[in-house]
Design a protein around this nucleic acid. Sequence first.
DNA 1: CATGAATGAGAGTTCATTCAT
DNA 2: GATGAATGAACTCTCATTCAT
Lengths: 194, 194, 194, 194
Amino acid sequence: MLSKSERTKKMILEKATELFIQKGYSAVTMKDVCEATGLSRGGLYRHFRSTGEMIISLIRAEQQNADNEFKEALAEGKSALQILDLFIDTHNRFLLSPKSALELAANQFALLDEKGKQINAERAWTTVKRTSHLVRLGQEEGVFIDGDPDSIAWHIVLFLGGLRTKTALDGAEPAFIYSQTNWIRDFLLKPNFK
Amino acid sequence: MLSKSERTKKMILEKATELFIQKGYSAVTMKDVCEATGLSRGGLYRHFRSTGEMIISLIRAEQQNADNEFKEALAEGKSALQILDLFIDTHNRFLLSPKSALELAANQFALLDEKGKQINAERAWTTVKRTSHLVRLGQEEGVFIDGDPDSIAWHIVLFLGGLRTKTALDGAEPAFIYSQTNWIRDFLLKPNFK
Amino acid sequence: MLSKSERTKKMILEKATELFIQKGYSAVTMKDVCEATGLSRGGLYRHFRSTGEMIISLIRAEQQNADNEFKEALAEGKSALQILDLFIDTHNRFLLSPKSALELAANQFALLDEKGKQINAERAWTTVKRTSHLVRLGQEEGVFIDGDPDSIAWHIVLFLGGLRTKTALDGAEPAFIYSQTNWIRDFLLKPNFK
Amino acid sequence: MLSKSERTKKMILEKATELFIQKGYSAVTMKDVCEATGLSRGGLYRHFRSTGEMIISLIRAEQQNADNEFKEALAEGKSALQILDLFIDTHNRFLLSPKSALELAANQFALLDEKGKQINAERAWTTVKRTSHLVRLGQEEGVFIDGDPDSIAWHIVLFLGGLRTKTALDGAEPAFIYSQTNWIRDFLLKPNFK
DNA sequence: CATGAATGAGAGTTCATTCAT
DNA sequence: GATGAATGAACTCTCATTCAT
């Protein structure tokens, strides 16, 4: 069972997530979180010293999640192509869900805060490493194109970053998202496997 | 010759550019611009009502520039491949220059301001149209891959957006930038033209 | 004629003086000064960024005053003994006036604030220099005791500091003050001049 | 042997002394003391309801000490001059030790807190009484100057107060301290005993 | 007796924006 | 047209202190 402090922390993060989705990162003030959680100023500060600390928690948790899913897929002995399709599917669903608005908050945080920059770099790097692992796997299976796995992974990550930002800002039609994420398949697969 | 008012406006934009490069968009206040330009509060407000108006001016001017360059290249009868290489080269140089930090300001503006969202969408759309035009040209010449030109253009624009954001945030080695922008060539050219 | 800004500044200092006398330094907040002057938060901050800046202004002005009085007395060709008696008289009157409560504020400032420490040291040093000058004068006239003028001056200044603090804290009867300041005469004068 | 409660109290006072020396009185919060002692909020409050109560304990103990030393010296049958030299020596050593910084805390307490004012007056009064006793002794022995013992004692106490404050604020060279405290001897002794 | 989560008041500070001169 | 004094709304952050467990 979670301690009282941990339960409060969890509750704060849930409310903060809603706020970040609604208003982005920078527009959410500590006062907003106080009101949303029903905590007093001092009570909130005991758990988080800034909205920055909250979003860091959220981003780290998300990374943790993605890493776990990838490890599970590997453990289940899935093929690179299966994992890729899973990966694309997860992305599509994320982009179409309201949670995609969190991307906007994460971007703001990276742009506004020195620590945010760091976290963002860390997040990118974790994602690249995971993707690079997948690319190597596919190359070993002879299904993915040749080339430096890191460079290929960065290409995909940068493209997805751009797509996520665009979606968060302007919204995007499902058809647009499907066709765009499909380029990743196109790009990665050797011609005879497309 | 420029009127006095136009010269003041130009001077304000130059100083504001420096500030945006140094501090990003959101950290620049009207007070900062007053101090940098030596104008009084009231004096500045006569020309721009907010830092948002300043950055809009800057973004529009940049778009105008890119459009002109493209039109010139077309007028000079350059081939799609030549224009593509020019385009990639311009990008590389932008990414390696201090001006790439302006991308960060433009992103912040898009993320923080309702009007900024609009301008950003407008900017993306202009860029996509231009790129799409180029893609069609290359397809007609039989050098570029087949597929919906708009979709292909969006893919490139989204990827470049991601790359620009990453560069502005973390910085990037020249080698990294060259290898990444080179994927565009790889992606666009038919196998036998690579 | 004073500029508008200078008039406002003067008015703020007058109101702040009243507040410092009533409540000491640390208990006076920027909000208090806003209310006392009728200025808005921002309006006050344009002139003084903290109550510390206000008290520094007051202390510096007081020093300026004392220096001017001393120079005048010298210019008028007064004897060391005459100046000493003037000096003691001025002190007695200060200690018996409500203004003596400002000493408390100045002490608090010195004790609470790093800058205040500095200003206090500066104030002590100025006073010592002035007193030392007087001592040398009296020694040249053959009326004051022998000894290092700086050391003698420090002795007087330290004693007066103690007396001022005590008066500000506990209050003091006129008779007590007269008898105490009179020790300075006793201490300085050669036996045959007492 | 001390009860558990008394041992905790003693430990708190030791840690608080360190804090007061480091930061003065006003900057030390109950939170600081919690952290320094390792006690919880509630635990600390059981022993002391405020930092004021702590410093009162410390000041009272110090007074007790000085009184005991004086009584011992009397009981040992020391002469007034011997006691004076002891007294000056003790002072010099105090002023040169890190403990002199506690004076600053005591001053802050006197200046900031109504109760502190009282304690300070009480402390001054105790010191004056003790000093006055010594003066009378020296006068009876025919070694000290004539005059009202209380007035003489106050003079010394006020001077030492000034010196202690100056030392705590600016620091002071040993030579300066020795020469200054030596004035007390000079002031008290009849010319033929100097 | 002890713990530590929570309260709530209030100080400080900054800025976009207005408007009398 | 320009100046710069002034407004007022918001937000951050910190503690002393209480009280359920």
